[in-house]
């Protein structure tokens, strides 16, 4: 819009330039779409074709066998695979992913939005400043430092350690809960997001304080003000944060992997996909230990088609979320233009 002036767009030189830019951009778009197409194509190839005709974009004999295998966990011989990701049918992982994402969404958005609203509009200047640093500080700290301590904290919540050697009375018994192997172990640490806090606060800052004052004079409580006046205005920013939160939780791998590793019936799709690719590409028998069920996996000819099918299934829900939030997203991005 602005670099090349509107008035001179008919000039041949400018037109050529615009064309070149358009071609360049369309190449980028196509390059982006190609892996998606390749993934979908491979997921519909029969295993034999994956090996014998690996470079065809359109499968010769398209088959939904990979999806069937994932959904039923029974191979072409009628054997139940009962190994690795095939211990549970696909819909279980899909359900788990949905559960985790929606739980995160339900916990994170209200908590973060309320905190952002309070810091933006309710707190005194001094308190707001300190709270802002308190909430934003972790964004600047590399999260990986907390991998191990968070794991320990979650394994005997609320105590980071079972005992503290050298300090008296810490070896007494205190009640504790283990969140390892539960969804709460993933959802609770994600119940507040500093990044979304920033987006929310940036938005609430743009709203005039008079709106709240007017509501107060009308006798509305703070909660009513937030619910009836602020939230409807905040719809675009809620859409943006909601979309980010949902996709973030959906894509999260390391969290569920560490917390749910030994609870396979609770794995989300991201972990299931990792495990399937691991079984394909990295699995080696460790010394003296061999999962007896792996034989059925090995001799069932499970290949990249199954992996790609799982990848397709994993991508569909966030694609749907994208379609739903598309309009709001484009609007919200302009509003939450990260001004401060």
């Amino acid at each position: 819009m602005p670099l090349i002036p509107q008035v001179g767009r008919r000039r041949p030189k400018t037109r050529l330039m615009l064309l070149a830019i358009a071609i360049f951009l369309w190449i980028g778009v196509l390059l982006h779409l190609f892996p998606v197409a390749w993934m979908i194509s491979a997921s519909f190839k029969p295993t034999l074709e994956i090996f014998n005709a690996p470079f065809r974009l359109i499968p010769k004999e398209p088959s939904a066998a990979s999806y069937k295998l994932l959904a039923s966990t029974v191979n072409a011989n009628g054997q139940s695979l009962n190994v690795d990701v095939f211990r549970y049918p696909l819909h279980i992982y899909l359900q788990n992913s949905i559960k985790i994402s929606f739980l995160t969404l339900l916990c994170q958005l209200p908590i973060t939005a309320m905190a952002a609203y309070a810091v933006s509009k309710l707190h005194s200047r001094r308190a707001a400043k300190w709270l802002f640093y308190f909430f934003m500080g972790t964004l600047m700290i590399p999260g990986q430092i907390a991998i191990v301590p968070r794991f320990l904290l979650l394994s005997h919540f609320p105590w980071p350690t079972r005992t503290v050697p050298g300090i008296p009375f810490t070896d007494l018994f205190f009640p504790s809960w283990s969140f390892i192997g539960t969804y709460w172990g993933i959802v609770l640490p994600a119940a507040f997001s500093a990044f979304n806090f920033l987006l929310f606060k940036g938005f609430f800052d743009t709203l005039p304080t008079e709106l709240i004052e007017a509501a107060r004079i009308d006798g509305a409580s703070e909660l009513t003000t937030l619910r009836a006046i602020m939230l409807p205005l905040a719809r675009p920013v809620i859409a943006v944060t909601g979309y980010f939160t949902f996709t973030g939780a959906w894509n999260d791998f390391l969290g569920p992997w560490i917390i749910l590793m030994s609870e396979q019936q609770k794995w989300p799709l991201s972990v299931a996909l990792y495990k399937l690719q691991w079984a394909l590409t990295s699995w080696q028998p460790s010394q003296g230990a061999m999962d007896p069920a792996l034989q059925t996996l090995i001799s069932s000819g499970v290949g990249y088609n199954a992996l790609m099918a799982l990848a397709v299934v994993e991508s569909i829900p966030i694609f749907i979320a994208f379609l739903i939030f598309r309009e709001q997203l484009m609007k919200g991005i302009q509003i939450a233009g990260l001004k401060g």
């Binding site: 394909l280 792996l294 090995i298 000819g301």
Partner: peptide
């Protein structure tokens, strides 16, 4: 990028 499952696939597909 290949593990036991893939080695077996190599073998089964005659490569």
């Amino acid at each position: 990028t290949m593990g036991w499952t893939e080695w077996h696939n190599e073998f089964d597909s005659g490569r």
